[in-house]
């Protein structure tokens, strides 16, 4: 049987500096409500920050909005799951090219690490992207705080 989400939140955020902090705080609050441990919340927050920055900096969206959906689910036995969808209505991007970037010290381009950080901090990541925009779906599983 699949557990249904106990908490759900949807946000429409303007693409302004530091808006990623508002998104991460909202997700963190929801995760705390279902008891997720702070270490997992910290990782989720950093992934969310990178996803929002990618949308703001690289999407080229005309409406200058980030659409965020967050659901929280208790899985029983002290486990929980957070699902996050970050959507922009920009021009999309080449996922394979983005994943292949591996910068080193001294390289010309030190930026572009967002996707690697997201994938390292989250348990599941899937990306749907086209000329009409991008949605990144991220999942974090966590043991609950005692």
């Amino acid at each position: 049987m699949t557990a249904s989400p106990e908490r759900q939140m949807e946000l429409t955020l303007p693409m302004v500096p530091d808006i990623e902090i508002a998104a991460a705080r909202a997700a963190g609050n929801l995760a705390r409500e279902i008891g997720m441990a702070s270490a997992s919340i910290d990782e989720m927050a950093h992934a969310m920050i990178e996803a929002c920055i990618n949308a703001r900096e690289h999407s080229g969206s005309q409406d200058r909005r980030i659409y965020v959906k967050i659901t929280g689910t208790s899985l029983g036995e002290g486990n929980s799951r957070i699902d996050i969808w970050i959507t922009d209505h920009g021009r999309g991007f080449n996922v394979t090219e983005a994943r292949s970037r591996r910068q080193q010290l001294g390289a010309v381009h030190k930026r572009g690490w967002g996707l690697q950080i997201i994938e390292a901090h989250m348990d599941e990541v899937s990306i749907t992207t086209s000329d009409d925009g991008t949605t990144i779906h991220m999942v974090k599983y966590g043991k609950n705080d005692d």
Partner: peptide
């Protein structure tokens, strides 16, 4: 408590 990849890229510089 919070960093992002742009900030870290500046630390690398």
């Amino acid at each position: 408590k919070i960093v992002n990849s742009i900030g870290i890229s500046i630390l690398i510089e």
